[in-house]
Design a binder for these strands. Structure first.
Length: 422
RNA sequence: GUGGGCGUAGCUCAGUUGGUUAGAGUGCCAGGUUGUGGCCCUGGAGGUCGUGGGUUCGAUUCCCAUCGCUCACCCCA
């Protein structure tokens, strides 16, 4: 019988890994709380239609990367490939707009895309992200970008590439779009096959094609930021003034275009050099028409999503973050069956009192037990052999100094000893 | 979906121009110390050499297929 292993693009997190993840998760919840965001948890699957309408029918994600299946009533469901569509759905479903003002939400959890796995890319992966609904003010854009970037800074990652662009709105983007098609159509032959295909459908994407010949073809095309309508232009200008007023390094990238259809105006990405081909740590932008497209009243919004696996890769490769493994505060080494029986209730009682205590369950020699305790990094070992048991005592050994002290084998005495040693 | 690289011990990897019991380091277990960790010494356990088929007297080695991992294209977090 062949061994069963994890599905492609998924992985197990073992105890050493989960310790790091939980540490990072704590920090994620903390920064969102400090910036005034409330956590939202939506289902891991939704009606397929939500993503088709929200993300866009012609995007790669919807066309070929979703895990879609039928339920027993033959309705099409899909494992969520991203977070924004679900948040908008929930925002409308629970009429969060009704409470008035700006709604600031964040999420954290697994997403699913059926792609070929690669460095920093998995089929089940984790993202955290923010969505701010109800304000068109560029201060919101700036705050969202600041939050995204400052989180990395807190973790000690400072050499990031923050890219910013505005891709306009339904008023000005079509103008740029047709201008682009007009300029590129004569050069069609020089484009890569992919770009030839998307020239008519989604010409903006040619701008960030990595193929050298496509880059040449688009080298002298006008910048989108020069053809923005008055509203988008002024919004973008205000955003830049705000970003310049806080210590965040970014640069304008007029070729930055993102893969989802719902983006309008502001788009941004944060890139890290040490991630291989999947170099985006997070990305996001404004989506002022998405809520309306999902059936709500016209409501502006902006958000971003960040990859957790990629962040951990960067943290590991730079060793900028120190994760503290939890070491027991005491290791009790019983010698012989009588001692084992005496130690067991003590072990449970100490744990219930909140102490991290370990012991031996293999009946091994004292030497082996000390070795194990040493490996765990424990600083105190309580040794209970027959002699100690007879005298109702326990020998407390300080591993760092090899100093030993006999104390009464009594719960309160041991607690007191632990407290003074701590 | 396409292309490159790789699958040998828990982990990191040697190796075999086809030949008898497949190796190292590390980790693990035990002993050296009848009850004292880190250093050292000795010994031990642990492998269907990814899987299936083919060639051959004989395959971990050669051939084919397949699966998996990985990197890149693509896309994106």
């Amino acid at each position: 019988m062949s061994k069963i292993i994890v599905p492609k693009g998924t992985y197990d997190l073992l105890p050493d890994d989960t310790a790091k993840w939980r540490d990072l998760e704590t920090k994620i919840h903390q920064i969102f709380s400090e910036y005034g965001y409330g956590e939202i948890r939506t289902p891991l699957f939704e009606h397929t239609e939500l993503f088709q309408r929200g993300i866009g029918e012609t995007t790669d994600i919807v066309e070929k990367e979703m895990f879609t299946f039928a339920d027993r009533a033959n309705r099409s469901l899909t494992l969520r490939p991203e977070g924004t569509a679900s948040v908008v759905r929930a925002y409308l479903e629970h009429n969060l707009a009704g409470s008035g003002g700006v709604t600031k939400l964040y999420y954290y959890g697994p997403m699913f895309r059926c792609e070929a796995p690669q460095a920093g890319r998995f089929r089940q992966f984790s993202q955290y992200g923010a969505e701010v609904l109800g304000s068109l003010d560029p201060r919101v854009d700036a705050e969202v970008i600041a939050l995204a970037v400052n989180f990395y800074r807190r973790l000690g990652i400072t050499d990031l590439d923050v890219r910013l662009n505005s891709i306009g709105c339904p008023n000005c983007r079509p103008v740029y779009r047709s201008k682009l098609i007009e300029r590129l159509r004569p050069k069609t032959g020089g484009l890569c096959s992919n770009c030839q295909r998307r020239l008519e459908r989604n010409p903006l994407r040619l701008l960030d094609c990595k193929n050298p010949s496509c880059q040449d073809a688009t080298a002298d095309i006008p910048l989108i930021t020069e053809t923005l309508c008055a509203e988008c232009g002024s919004h973008f200008e205000k955003l830049r003034i705000l970003l310049d007023s806080i210590p965040i390094n970014y640069h304008l990238d007029s070729r930055l275009v993102r893969g989802f259809d719902y983006y309008t105006k502001t788009v941004f990405e944060v890139l890290a050099g040490d991630l291989g081909a999947q170099n985006a740590l997070c990305g996001g932008g404004r989506y002022d028409n998405l809520v309306e497209e999902c059936g709500g009243n016209p409501t502006p919004g902006i958000g971003f999503a960040a990859g957790v696996e990629r962040l951990l890769i960067v943290l590991e490769s730079r060793k900028t973050s120190v994760f503290h493994p939890e070491t027991p505060e005491l290791y009790i080494a019983p010698l012989g069956e009588a001692a084992q029986l005496a130690v067991f209730p003590l072990l449970i009682k100490l744990r219930e009192a909140g102490w991290k205590v370990e012991s031996d369950f293999l009946g091994r020699s004292l030497k082996a037990q000390l070795k194990t305790a040493d490996k765990m990094g424990v600083s105190l070992v309580g040794i209970l052999g027959e002699d100690e048991l007879q005298g109702r005592q326990i020998l407390m050994r300080r591993m760092a100094t090899s100093q030993q002290e006999m104390i009464p084998l009594d719960y309160d005495c041991i607690i007191n000893f632990l407290k003074t040693e701590k």
